[in-house]
Amino acid sequence: MGNNGRMENGYPAVVAASVTVARPRLMNAVAFWSLLFLSTAAGNVLAHGMRAWRDAQPFAALGTSIEEFSSALSTLALLVVLHAATRRWPLHADTWRRRIGFYLLGGIAWWLLHVSMMVLLRKLAFALVGQHYTYGDWPAQWFYEFFKDVQTYSLLVIAVHAAAWFGRRRQGEAHLLAEPDDGPPIEPVERPQHFLVRKLGKEFLVATADVEYAQAAGNYVNLRVRGHDYPLRITMAALEQRLDPAMFLRTHRSWLIHRGQLRSIEPLDGGEALLHMVDGARVPCSRRQLPTLRQALAGA
Results as ranks from 00 to 15, higher is better:
Gln151Tyr: 09
Val129Lys: 11
Leu104Met: 12
Trp110Glu: 00
Pro139Gly: 09
Gln131Trp: 06
Leu113Trp: 06
Gly107Trp: 07
Thr152Trp: 00
Pro139Glu: 05
Gly136Lys: 07
Val119Pro: 07
Phe143Gly: 03
Leu105His: 03
Val119Met: 10
Trp110Ile: 01
Lys148Phe: 12
Leu120Arg: 08
Ala109Gln: 04
Arg122Phe: 05
Leu105Lys: 01
Val150Glu: 08
Tyr133Ala: 12
Phe146Arg: 03
Trp110His: 10
Ile108Cys: 03
Ala127Gly: 10
His132Phe: 13
Leu104Cys: 12
Lys148Cys: 07
Leu104Asp: 08
Gln131Thr: 06
Trp142Lys: 00
Leu112Phe: 05
Gly107Thr: 00
Phe143His: 11
Leu155Gly: 10
Ala140Gln: 14
Asp149Pro: 00
Ala109Trp: 05
Gly107Val: 01
Gly107Asn: 03
Leu121Met: 13
Arg122Ala: 14
Val115Asp: 07
Phe146Asn: 02
Tyr135Val: 04
Thr134Tyr: 14
Ala125Trp: 02
Asp149Ser: 13
Ser116Pro: 09
Gly130Asp: 11
Ser154Tyr: 01
Val150Gln: 11
His132Ile: 11
Ala109Met: 05
Gly107Ala: 13
His114Cys: 01
Glu145Thr: 08
Phe143Met: 14
Thr134Gln: 15
Leu124Pro: 09
Glu145Cys: 14
Met117Ala: 12
Ile108Arg: 00
Leu121Trp: 14
Leu128Tyr: 03
Trp110Val: 01
Pro139Cys: 08
Tyr133Val: 11
Tyr135Thr: 02
Glu145Tyr: 05
Thr134His: 15
Phe146Gln: 05
Phe146Gly: 02
Met118Cys: 04
Leu104Gln: 09
Gln141Ala: 15
Met117Pro: 00
Tyr135Gly: 05
Asp137Tyr: 09
Phe126His: 11
Thr152Phe: 02
Met118Lys: 05
Arg122Val: 11
Leu124Arg: 11
Arg122Ser: 12
Ser154Val: 14
Tyr135Ser: 09
Leu112Cys: 06
Tyr144Cys: 03
His114Gly: 00
Ala125Arg: 06
Leu120His: 04
Ser116Glu: 02
Val150Ile: 14
Val115Asn: 03
Val150Cys: 06
Thr152Ala: 11
Leu104Ile: 06
Val115Cys: 03
Val129Ile: 15
Lys123Gly: 13
Trp142Pro: 00
His114Thr: 01
Phe147Thr: 10
Gln151Lys: 09
Leu124Thr: 14
Glu145Ser: 14
Leu105Ser: 04
Phe126Val: 06
Trp142Glu: 11
Leu113Phe: 12
Phe143Ser: 10
